[in-house]
Amino acid sequence: MTGSATAVEPRGGPLVVARVWLRDRPLVPLLLLLAGLVALLEVVQPGIVSVNWVASTMRFAIPLAILAACQTMTMLTGGIDLSVAVVASMSAYVMATTQSDIGWLAASLVALVPAGVVGLVNGIGVGLFRVHPLIMTISMSLVVSGAVNVYARSNITGGTRVPSEITDLGGQSLLGFLPNSLIVFIPLAALILVALRRSGYGRLLYAVGDNEVASRLAGVRVGRVLVVLYLISGLLAGFAGLIYAGVIGSATGRLVDPFLLPSVAAAVIGGTSIFGGRGGYAGSIVGALILTVLVTFLNVMQAPEAVRQILFGAIILAVAATYTRITEGS
């Protein structure tokens, strides 16, 4: 079946045709970039790309992809959630400090409670009080990181340990190449993808982000939509923290903090507009994979930390700029 834009036979050379074709299929350039990066990695260090390597890349990419889901969904409404990283660290830490008393399952559920509370407060601030999402979530992350420190002080004798059930989920692989965390990630990603495209709530997110006034006039209770959205974002962030604790095998109060900016970057290079209304989760998943491979690549190059950071920033910017040009067209 031909897309509507290709049916209109764009005038101009093959370059224009290619551009229009790419604009309708935004995932293609991303997948090409991912394949290119993997190929480059194999050229730089022959033999590195193996079944094991794929499994370990996926293991590291999955928590990032879940955090990118928080950014994707909030960005669709024109918002952003800058509290996801500290919330994820908090959940991981709470789980690791309570599991010896109440068992791993109860500890994981208990760890999601504060994550949900933070998300709810974010939602109330953004949805009902109309605070700018950037400000609301930055302020809440100040509260959360302070609260984690206070909790760590009171818990100094407790000690932390990540239970084997969680490390199995995050750090082990099925048949040697399928990370166990895929068992939870595939249904979760499928749910988000389908919900964003097909469910009424998912479409409301696009509607609110595209034109908030119009959706309000059409009878959408924008405030409620946003409260639920940030609640979901908080819970997902907490969940990502638990899985990442499993990947690493230990937990501190700041475990997931460095993932904040990459989570935004994954959604952005995945093609979700930070102004809302445009984008989707599939791109963010590929974005998370690209960033993870990129980090491996910079590590393999054995570049000093300074050069690594510079290249990381420059590549994010270059990808975002190229992508903006392709998808927005001329």
Binding site: L134, L261, A265, I274, Q309, A314, I316, L317, T324
Partner: peptide
């Protein structure tokens, strides 16, 4: 033509 917040986020690393 990338949003300010994304450009300066990338430049934060640089």
């Amino acid at each position: 033509r990338v949003p300010d917040i994304v450009v300066t986020l990338a430049m934060l690393f640089v």
